[in-house]
Nucleic acid binder design. Sequence first.
DNA 1: TATAGATATTGACGCTGTCAATTATAATAA
DNA 2: TTATTATAATTGACAGCGTCAATATCTATA
Lengths: 201, 201
Amino acid sequence: MATNKQFHHGGLKLALLRAARDLLDEEGESGVGVRAVARRVGVSHAAPVNHFKDRRALLTALTAELIDDIRVDIENRLKTVSEDPVTRIETIANVFIDYGAHHPNRYSLLWRYDVVDHESEMMRSKSDIIYDFICDEIDKLTTGRNIDRDTIAIGLWSMLHGYIDLKIVGMFEDRADSVTGEDRPRALVKMFRTVLDNYGL
Amino acid sequence: MATNKQFHHGGLKLALLRAARDLLDEEGESGVGVRAVARRVGVSHAAPVNHFKDRRALLTALTAELIDDIRVDIENRLKTVSEDPVTRIETIANVFIDYGAHHPNRYSLLWRYDVVDHESEMMRSKSDIIYDFICDEIDKLTTGRNIDRDTIAIGLWSMLHGYIDLKIVGMFEDRADSVTGEDRPRALVKMFRTVLDNYGL
DNA sequence: TATAGATATTGACGCTGTCAATTATAATAA
DNA sequence: TTATTATAATTGACAGCGTCAATATCTATA
């Protein structure tokens, strides 16, 4: 008979993660503290230790959740799209670019190797997931040909990540732009399209 | 008659910045604290406030120094190289890639908008410097032609930054590699070369 | 109903950044 | 020379943080 309230919480762990995510959105990584999260949930400052041994563990669990969200997003969008690998790559790229634009603090956290434990059991399988999506499609294009799969994939993945990251930092803000801001990502994807063309893909 | 020792230090400001840089290399951004820096220089915990009003100000000043170093590096390397814009772009890229590989903590700090004040007087002129180097060369290639300068520059700059950043995070570590690690950057630069070719540059 | 295990609280510790008050030094004016 | 002023460093305090140990509380099981 699952009572979903024990004495102060049904699932404190879930509540903590939800609070952590909200704090991340509002204040950035530095705002996601053990005490701050506990405070927001309305629980004592040391309560989280039962579910996350560390601030590091908390941030790592949060990051794992975020990555899962992105994975689901990509999977859903890919279902609505043709089997053409290039189209699918563009789809993946767009999901990712949108994610970075709408949730800059979440995106930045994903790559903070100093506060997130990418070697943990929870993360080891996850941190490469988005990259793997890209590789899958590149594979379809390159199988049977004498082309280095990784060079293409790393090139695309690097450009994608770099663009999102630099945009979050504010690099491209006051730059004279003959291409409007919204079309810029598309221009980059199209640019990479020419790379594939060049390799005969 | 400039006595270079006042009562405890000649140039405490410089010494603090030097200590900050060392701590950054050894422990990463989180290791660069006001108190830790003061401790290393051998001065009281509140001494730095006279020269840097904040931890933020300290990190910002350090970042400004690092960017200056890179600028000097690039300028020097460009002197030893032909006037061919593509060659010069490759040179810039290589300097930057090497910097990221040898000083990962320094490179990461450059883009930490949460702890570095990129809007400060000191930074406003500096944070675009490396990007400007690239733009200068792209300009030489695109002037007179109906090609969007920024799309090319942003694409290259994004790929460059993204690759360095992802490499620091450890993304490409255990990945099957038909291209050896050292040749990877060159492969990417060459890949971008094909982009330029495609635009007829 | 008693016991055991999980879960939350309380209080303490050392660390941090920051500020105010104080002391020490250096440069300048009388 | 001595007195004055501005600069620079010290000391001590404060609240916040992460973490740990000891304690209290609730849940489930025997």
